[in-house]
Amino acid sequence: MTQATVSERIRDVGFLRRLLTRPELAAVAGAVLVFVFFAIVAGDRGFLTFGGTMSYLVVAAQLGIVAVPVALLMINGEFDLSVGSMVGAAGIIIAITVTEFGWPLFAGALLACVFALLVGAFNGWVVIKTGLPSFIVTLAMLFALRGLTIGFSRLITGRTQIGGLGAATEGDPLRVIFAGEIAGIPVAVFWWLGLAVLGTYVLQRTVFGNWIFGVGGDKVAARNVGVPVNRVKVILFMCTALSAALLATIQVMDAGSADVLRGQLLELQAIAASVIGGVLLTGGYGSVVGAVFGALIFGMVQQGIFFTGVNTDWFLVFVGAMLLVAVLFNNVIRKRASKG
């Protein structure tokens, strides 16, 4: 009886089957499918050109910069719905300090980052202290932060859109880091890929990454073996907020202006990218690579539809359908993985 069980367990399972249990499989396969689809439908209309490729990579990069830490936070078992509002707030902070107060760019960006870290720490602290779901806590922050941004922007400048950043930061070396290009590729793409590598390294190869999985898988069990559960959570909330400030800096430099409404729906897109990428909504399972491909799918679909000439209104229908299919597919993979 025991012997039979043992020999059953050591039966060799092929590479293909192991591949089929990877969390990011759906996103990678989805990205290939979407690419092939648009290559066929819109290949002759510019989708495959360098410019076309850059156009969807930039969209994917902007989402991906936030989606990487959001995926880590979700694997850790929490949500952050305030990242979109954080993008708006950080952008306005930079714009006001630079154009109204005459601060140098680095000081404005630094203040935005510090503010983001404080908001992230506050989110984490409230979640831990109240025991409320982070979904609710950060939803409250979504509204409050957006309201504060609009309120202060109007109070200080009398406007909700602040321009003139291009002229004010002319020749600033930081422009190259946030809004420059390398070999014609916008730096946002490198930020995205850099964060993806960093996120994957942290999750797969560091002690902290093991804690992220452990806390997300079972908070109590992780605490029982000595994992500092609260610290892990707070740090990750700070990371998601910081990534929003980074994205805001890039957007502000890129557009030369800030708008209080920037980043709306970004929080849901980041969650969608993570989920398409195989992150389990209840935590404990997923990968950064998946979220990166989730963001790539978003970018390709949004820009791809534009290249087909079909009205871009249909973009969201496509995203909704894809989200549902991806989640169903991921469920199958996960069941397979836990059955061995």
Binding site: F213, G214, A222
Partner: peptide, 18 residues
């Protein structure tokens, strides 16, 4: 609560004492 089901065996084994 001895083990976390969706985590790998070796990750579980060393969780908290990596």
């Amino acid at each position: 609560l001895a083990m976390i089901p969706l985590m790998g065996i070796s990750r579980n084994f060393f969780l908290g004492r990596e």
